[in-house]
Amino acid sequence: MKRANMILLVLLALALPLSLLAGRVWLDFGVTPNAEVILAQLRLPRALLAIIVGAGLGAAGAAMQGYLRNPLADPGLFGIAPGAALGAVASFWFGYSASAWLLPIFALTGAAGAMALLALIAGRTGGIALFTLAGMMIASLAGAMMSLAISFAPNAFAMSEIVTWLMGALTDRSWREVYLAAPLTLAGILCFLMARRDLDALILGDAAARSMGMRPGVLQFWLIAGVGLTVGSGVAVAGIIGFVGLIVPHLVRPFTDRKPSALIIPSALAGALLVLVADSVVRILPTITELRLGIALSLIGAPFFLWLLLRMRRGYSGGLM
């Protein structure tokens, strides 16, 4: 596990400066006009935000797969990402999105609403099935309300803004978003670390875990808080970026001892690396307008998901489990 962390840290250290230089304009200090401004005000906050969002999504994916004991689980299952997205959509709908802080605050409020609803429905019994179904219901409800908001958008501009924002991107983000997302994501990852022993106990199932002292309600609290903080803040600053939480734990798992606790930090690092690299790639692709990061990751993630399903259907679980 420590070796995996070291390798990922080295890769991140290599990828970060390359990401800072890469883009429509390849920064060449002394040649590129305003290179320092581009670096300090655009590239650096964007790269850091990619690292923060990716780390949060990766860690949340590892925790969710551990909790649901399912390699196909994704943080989106909790309904918190759609809840946050619904909050952001509401800010567009009511025309508040132009204000610097209101969009992320609306998104975080949406995430908090989804978290509260989830905690309320799942209650203190802590049943995993009820929890998952409640999350799916919230996701479905939030999705329907977003569609409703798009259908009844007050004007074409708002509709276009909503649809574009939902695709997820890190374009034109500033230090403001970094300051918002960094502490929340860090707090979320700490919540997952608080849950790590209980997640390990769940390897042997719910009954064995409870017999070892795992308290289902406490575990759910840490997970709701963790997913709410990481995914909620990620959606608040970058929109919907799917599949990172699903893919990353798979890529990392073979390099760990496969316990959920051993997967959280490497998944955070690998998630950071994946989003940083993907965001750099969408910047340098020769497209007329920049490919949205959310679309790019879905284009990678969906075939990966299918490949996972096919491997599972063949009964091979060596790399999966």
Binding site: D200, L204, A207, M212, G213, R258, K259
Partner: peptide
């Protein structure tokens, strides 16, 4: 407590599985 039909969700090594017993 040893439940019926004990299955491990993740393919951990035997030693790591046994070490889970230290959780309490």
């Amino acid at each position: 407590f040893l439940p019926q039909n004990g299955e491990a969700a993740w393919d951990v090594a035997v030693r790591n599985l046994v070490a889970l017993g230290r959780m309490p």
